[in-house]
Amino acid sequence: MLTYQECLDMSGLTEDEIEAIAEHERMDPMIAAALGQYLIVKDDEARIRTIILDDIKKAEKGGNEAHAEALRKVLKHFLATHPDRKD
């Protein structure tokens, strides 16, 4: 059986990026790691970018500026490390 860390390492994403996917999709982080890895392999970085942006908007709407700021940092790192090859 794979550990969470092994799944995280194979996903090509950071733990914060996986947590953003898990939050958005309301799923366990282990499943979110698999989804994130699938999206990277399918060359669908735009979907992950949209997920993180949606999480930021939800945090802002809920008045949780600290969480929104943390997610902005996640987005910034994601964009730097996973440029959309379709653009």
Rank of each mutant, 00 (worst) to 15 (best):
C7F: 04
M10H: 03
E45W: 00
A46V: 11
P29C: 05
M30Q: 14
M1P: 09
A66Q: 15
L35S: 15
Y4G: 06
D54H: 13
I18V: 14
E60F: 07
E65P: 09
L13Q: 00
L75M: 08
R85G: 12
A66M: 12
M27F: 06
L79S: 13
Q37D: 08
V41T: 11
H24W: 04
L79V: 14
M30F: 14
K58A: 15
I40W: 05
I21L: 00
I21K: 00
L53Y: 04
T14V: 03
L39C: 12
I56F: 01
E25S: 08
I40S: 08
E17Q: 10
A22Q: 02
G63T: 10
L13G: 02
D84Y: 11
L35T: 15
A68S: 13
L2S: 10
Y4W: 03
L13T: 04
E45F: 00
K73D: 01
A20D: 06
L8P: 02
I48E: 01
L79R: 13
M30G: 11
P29N: 07
I18Y: 03
R26Q: 13
D16V: 03
G62C: 06
A22F: 01
L39R: 11
Q37K: 15
E15N: 13
S11Y: 00
I40Y: 07
M27K: 12
K42Q: 12
A80Y: 01
I18T: 06
E69D: 13
F78A: 03
A20Q: 05
